[in-house]
Design a protein around this nucleic acid. Structure first.
Lengths: 341, 341
DNA sequence: TTGTAGGCGTTATCAC
DNA sequence: GTGATAACGCCTACAA
């Protein structure tokens, strides 16, 4: 019932525990074994389904083989952002046989109370952050560093100096979006821009977007940039103005900073009798699962969340191993669907 | 840098390790301490930020304080099912200071290769299942039992005898849906029914649905039941037939077994010029986040995934502690929105 | 080529 | 009231 130990295998094989340990780990040190004895030991271990006790191994190694994973849920409902993050992260963790202490948080208070309290070297080897933070994590990251806990982030932009991040170029998000719309013949795009969080995500995406259109000889005038709130969703007022602009043919595309926003824009356009994509094309960001369920399947810029999460785990592992890994930057890509056909 | 140990506190307080351990754990056994000494010890521990070493504690207790969480992703993209599951499960795990080994799987092969291999008493104390399984898990559960690993499931229906489940009454899903539509004046509903998995989820939801309408004197004729595939999504053909039925006023409501399906039905109806909800009401199941993003906000039956996941963790904990917890059954509830206004 | 001894940090039993 | 000691299972330097 209880697990098989090295001692059990040693007894059955009539050898010492150390020999079994060495043979099974493959690290013989200064020792040697007769090949036949080694294979007999391995066979017994296999037959009895030996798996090393995680706690004992951790106690010896001084590692917990467990990382804390803190995910901000801010503005992520339905975007599958977290699900994709976890898909990538767990794949990488499972490969390494590591465990995790997963916690979600919605705001700073919750973060300090529930998450930070659980981050100790006596429980985890490091901390991985994901989701969409909307408060400054720098102080928390400094506190973790003080506790000797390595950290890594999977955010669009790095959260603090010295903390490796598996990010995505925000300028590139705007650039690939613009290039895609240009290739579809758009010349008068409207861009929804949110202030985002401290790193000015929105501004930089917008900058990339505008730069491409500018270079193509079709600069995006200020009256075709609509500021939206931090929730990345345009309000009724903004939607009405967008629909009106579309009706009078002042715009031929809408680039939204989120799929939620894009879905709402799409609905508003259709309701106003605007034909999508013939008259106006719509492009979102995140490549959310519900894109395929929209009245017209929604095109969207993917920021490769799954792959970045896996990369984040690897960055953290490097840091835990004592390295000083550099942040990485993923290239976004457009998933083209009905709204930009 | 490295964590503070009991030994460190004992040195500072000028007492033995055992005394510190007893005082901090509050389990004094046959011992006693002077209150002032106890509080001095506690103060030192607090000041130095003492957190017991998880590995050492596990080694002593024989527990890993870690559970395996295996989530089937089958048919869950965008439904937020997994996200909600994890929200509930992690909250409960964090409360108990437990870790988890999370793994996603898509099919049986992946499950056997990636998940089952990681389930050992030497690594985890038990196994929790969630998501939507679409193959028979009974053999796997039997194998876990053989390994002495307790298991619990968070499925609609129990997956195997003797494995506690935090479920939801499938009949009740149909019942609350029917009652809701009845209360909105519907008398000629159409029901989309999928074969679901082995436990005949679809049939039982349908049975509950029909029973309520039958009792209300408006039985659901067979020609108003449309069978759909296991993916819970109607194909183009089915959508066309539904729209046609709606146009000739043969139906006044559509009850879908999933929000994905409901979203597609809604789109098909609107495209065919059917007014929703005036002419036909639409009701889904799962209360997915994208419900609020549909052309008309989608009403949906919630099966309380978050709460059930938390309950699942508690069931598993009971089983790990040696108990034989009974399965529980949640009552679904309707989240009423635009499509059943 | 094989075995012994000791330590990782915590807890529980028992002796003082 | 307090402390010494052994045990959990694994790993490794060192002895034989």
């Amino acid at each position: 019932m209880s697990s098989v130990r090295i001692l059990d295998i040693a007894s059955e094989a009539g050898v010492s525990r150390s020999l079994v340990s060495k043979v099974l780990s493959g690290r013989m040190g200064t020792s040697t074994v007769r090949p036949e004895l080694a294979s007999r030991i391995r066979k017994i271990a296999q037959a009895r389904g030996f798996v090393p006790n995680a706690a004992a191994r951790s106690l010896h190694s001084g590692r917990q083989d467990c990382i804390a994973v803190f995910l901000s849920r801010h503005g992520t409902e339905g975007s599958a952002l977290l699900e994709r993050f976890l898909d990538g992260a767990t794949r990488e963790l499972a490969r390494a046989g590591k465990r995790m202490g997963l916690q979600f948080f919605h705001d700073e208070a919750e973060f300090r109370r529930d998450c930070l309290a659980a981050a100790s070297r006596a429980r985890v080897d490091g901390v991985l952050f994901g989701g969409m933070p909307y408060f400054d994590l720098a102080p928390a990251l400094a506190e973790l560093a003080e506790r000797g806990l390595p950290a890594a982030t999977v955010f669009g932009d790095p959260a603090a100096e010295g903390v490796p991040n598996a990010g995505v170029s925000q300028e590139a998000v705007g650039e690939v979006a613009a290039k895609h719309l240009l290739s579809r013949g758009c010349r008068r795009p409207l861009a929804l821009s949110s202030p985002g969080f401290s790193a000015k995500v929105g501004e930089r995406r917008l900058a990339g977007f505008r730069a491409v259109f500018e270079k193509a000889g079709a600069p995006v005038a200020d009256d075709r940039v609509v500021a939206i709130s931090r929730t990345y969703v345009p309000n009724a007022d903004a939607l009405a103005r967008i629909a009106a602009a579309a009706k009078r043919r002042a715009i031929d595309a809408v680039f939204c900073e989120s799929d939620r926003g894009a879905a709402l824009v799409l609905n508003a356009l259709l309701e106003a009798g605007v034909r999508v994509p013939e008259q106006v094309k719509v492009l979102g960001v995140d490549d959310s699962p519900f894109c395929t369920l929209a009245a017209i399947p929604l095109s969207s810029v993917s920021t490769h969340e799954t792959e970045r999460a896996a990369a984040g785990v690897r960055l953290l592992d490097e840091a835990i191993a004592g390295g000083a890994p550099a942040s990485i930057l993923a290239r976004p890509a457009v998933a083209a669907r009905g709204t930009t056909r």
